[in-house]
Amino acid sequence: MIEIGVDFGGTKIEAAALAPDGAFLSRVRAPNPGSYDAAIRAVRELVEEAEGQAGGQGTVGVGAPGSVSPRTGLIRNANSTYLNGRRFREDLETALGRPIRLANDANCLALSEAVDGAAAGAASTFAVIIGTGCGGGLVVNGLVVDGANGIAGEWGHISLPWPKPDEVPGPSCWCGQCGCLETWISGTGLQHDFARVSGRELKGAEIVAAAKSGDADAAAAFERYVDRLGRALAMVVNLVDPEAFVFGGGVSNAEDLYARLPAAISPYVFGDAWTATLAPAKWGDSSGVRGAARLWRAGQKVS
C-alpha cells in the first residue's frame, strides 16, 4: 500500500509517496500560499501529483503546526495563524474525498526517526525542533503520544528550567507568557540573545560559524545556548527519560552540539547515571513528510 505524507510548513508544502519499505516513489513541493482556501487547494493538488507520479492512490497523513483541540475539533496554536479556529482535517478530507490523519509536525519528525531513522530500535523517542521556533514530539513503542488533551510534547512553551537571575522573567513570547523555551533555544532565540549581549546582528547559522572561527561574542552566545538547551533537555529526561533524542531545525546542524550536550544535561538529571542517544534526524528535512506518511500505521492515536 502506498503511503502519502504531507508536510505543511510555513513557507512550503511538500507531499511524498512512500513504498511499504520506506523508499520514495515521488516527492513534490509548492510554496505555501499563505491563506486558508488556497492552502487546501495546494494540498489537494500536491497529493494528486504525488499519487500520479507514484502510480496509485494511498493513505494520506498530514503533519501540520499546532494541534487539534479534542473539545472543538479546531486547530489551535499554529504559527500559520490562518489555520487556527478551522476544521483543517475535515476540510482536507472534503477536498481529497477520503479520510486523512493529522498530527503535529514535531510528532511526525519523532515517528519518522523512530521507525527507520536515528532512533530506530529505541522504545521511546523525543523529537526536538530548534529552528525558527521550538517544538517537541514524543513516540513510545512506535506510537505517537498525543496526550489526553492533544498537547503532549508542547515543549517550546514551558519556561526555561533552573533559571539564572539574569534569565528571569525572560523574553516575552507570542503565546502571552515570558521566558518560554522558544524564546531561548530556538534559532531565533539564539539570534536575539546574541544581539542583546553583543549589540551585533547575526543569524543563528552565522553565530554558530563565527563561534567555530574564534569570535568571542559568538562563542559566548553558543556556550549560553548549550547550557540552556541542556537544562531544557534534562527536564524532559526527568519527566520521560527517553532512550533517544532526535533533533531537527536549523540549529540541529551545529555539529558541536552533540558532543557538548551530555555534560550540559547530566548535572540536572535526578539520577546516579544517565545515557541516551543524541543525534540529528537521519532523514533531515524529509523526516516530517515521512512521519506524516506513516500516521496510518496500526494503532496510531492521532486526529
Rank of each mutant, 00 (worst) to 15 (best):
A64Q: 09
T72F: 11
S252M: 09
K164D: 09
P31H: 04
L160H: 07
A211D: 06
F270P: 00
A152H: 06
V139L: 13
I75G: 00
G291H: 06
L181N: 10
V6I: 14
F245C: 06
W174K: 01
L111R: 05
T183L: 00
E48V: 14
K212M: 06
T72P: 07
I100H: 01
S124R: 12
L257I: 15
V251N: 02
I75T: 13
T94F: 06
R260S: 15
V144H: 08
D227I: 10
M1F: 09
V226M: 13
L233S: 04
S198A: 08
T11K: 01
I151F: 05
R224E: 08
E201R: 08
P163N: 03
L261T: 12
E90H: 02
A244R: 03
G291P: 13
E167I: 07
R297P: 01
L257N: 12
G199W: 13
A209Y: 02
G9K: 01
A42W: 06
E14C: 10
R76M: 05
G63S: 11
G271L: 09
E113T: 10
P99V: 10
S35F: 09
A216R: 14
P163I: 08
Q300S: 10
R87P: 04
E93K: 04
S112T: 08
V208K: 00
G147F: 07
S69N: 11
R44M: 03
A209M: 06
D21P: 13
N149G: 09
L18Y: 12
A119W: 11
V269D: 01
S35P: 00
G97Y: 11
D227T: 14
E182R: 07
P171R: 14
A50C: 10
C175G: 04
Q191E: 15
T125I: 07
D215I: 11
A78G: 10
V145A: 12
V208Y: 04
W274I: 00
D166I: 09
K301S: 11
F247T: 00
N149I: 09
G56R: 05
W155A: 00
P267F: 03
I13N: 01
V269G: 00
H157E: 02
G117R: 02
R101V: 07
F245G: 06
K212H: 05
E113W: 03
V168Q: 08
L239Y: 09
G63D: 10
V128H: 04
P280L: 07
G189A: 03
K164T: 10
G61I: 14
D256N: 10
G153N: 03
